Amino acid sequence: MTKRILKIVGFLLLLGVLIGGGLLVAGSKKAPTTTHPATASSNKQPKKVTTPKPVAKLTMTELKRHPDLRYSSIIYYGIKYTHIQRWQEVSDFSRGWQVEIYHAQAKYLVWPDKHIKAEAKQLEPNWFKLDSQGNVTYHSFVVHSFRDDQTKTVNLTEIVAQINHDHAMKKVRQMPTNLTTLNHTK
């Protein structure tokens, strides 16, 4: 009977070893577990990539219909492309601009703050003239000098083409919100 018990115990031990070894082998083939729990978002479809809408190009028709956009385009060009040093005085886009219009002379004074007060207008500002053919002549007074104004003349169609070429249409279209105009009829 002891032989029989020894055989049964031996069999059970052998069976235990085989089962234990099988579990070890099966465990090593198992995929590694992640430390991060699965989320419901893993079943979602990938996000669609949307391309931004292209900004419409500026047109001469648009500038004719919207004077503030026309002034903004002229100011933008004056700051970026005239290479007249004093036009940099109006380059703070956050402060905006005040444009004083003298219709009788077709003269537009450009002040460097949309809220500028008369007492702050001590020095002659930058200004431009706009003729009926669309020619814009930029003027800048030379401080501490007896020389003539620095000037540059460019056509409004060239201004529009440059803004469109540089993809600055969106920036220029935002400028009128930071622009005030004062009209002088005399």
Rank of each mutant, 00 (worst) to 15 (best):
G134L: 05
Q133D: 09
H115S: 10
T153M: 05
L182V: 15
H83W: 03
K171L: 09
G21R: 01
Q150D: 15
S91G: 11
V142L: 07
V55P: 02
L13D: 04
A120C: 02
L13H: 04
M60T: 13
L14A: 14
V160T: 08
S140N: 01
K170I: 01
G10L: 15
Y108D: 01
G27I: 05
I79Q: 02
G78W: 04
I74Q: 02
K57A: 15
T181I: 14
F11Q: 03
P112C: 08
S73K: 05
V99K: 08
L12F: 13
H36V: 08
L156E: 12
L179K: 12
K57H: 07
G96A: 13
T137G: 02
Q133S: 11
D149T: 03
K48M: 10
V136A: 03
V25H: 07
A161F: 08
N183T: 14
L69K: 04
F93G: 01
S145P: 04
Q133R: 09
L18A: 15
T33K: 13
L6Q: 06
R86N: 13
P176S: 07
P37Q: 12
K114P: 01
K152A: 08
W87L: 04
S94M: 09
Y102D: 09
K30Q: 04
S42M: 12
Q98H: 10
Y102Q: 05
M175I: 12
S145R: 11
K48I: 14
L69A: 04
T61A: 13
I101P: 01
Q88K: 13
G78R: 03
L156W: 06
L13M: 07
L18R: 05
K3R: 11
E89T: 13
Y102T: 14
H103S: 13
A104R: 14
D148Q: 09
N183M: 11
R65G: 07
V49P: 00
M175G: 00
V136I: 13
T39I: 05
V25D: 04
M175C: 01
R147L: 14
K30G: 00
I84T: 12
T34D: 15
Q88H: 11
R4M: 09
G22M: 00
G134C: 09
K48E: 12
K3D: 12
K48R: 06
L58P: 03
P67Y: 08
K3F: 06
N135K: 05
P125C: 11
K53W: 00
N135V: 14
K44F: 11
A26M: 14
R65H: 03
T33E: 15
T137I: 10
K170V: 01
L69I: 06
P32M: 10
Q105M: 10
K186N: 08
L179R: 10
L15H: 02
R147K: 12
V17M: 14
W127K: 13
P54C: 03
N43Q: 08
L109I: 06
I101H: 07
Q162G: 00
G134Q: 11
T35Y: 11
H103T: 13
P176K: 03
H184R: 08
K170Y: 04
I75G: 01
G22L: 02
K53P: 03
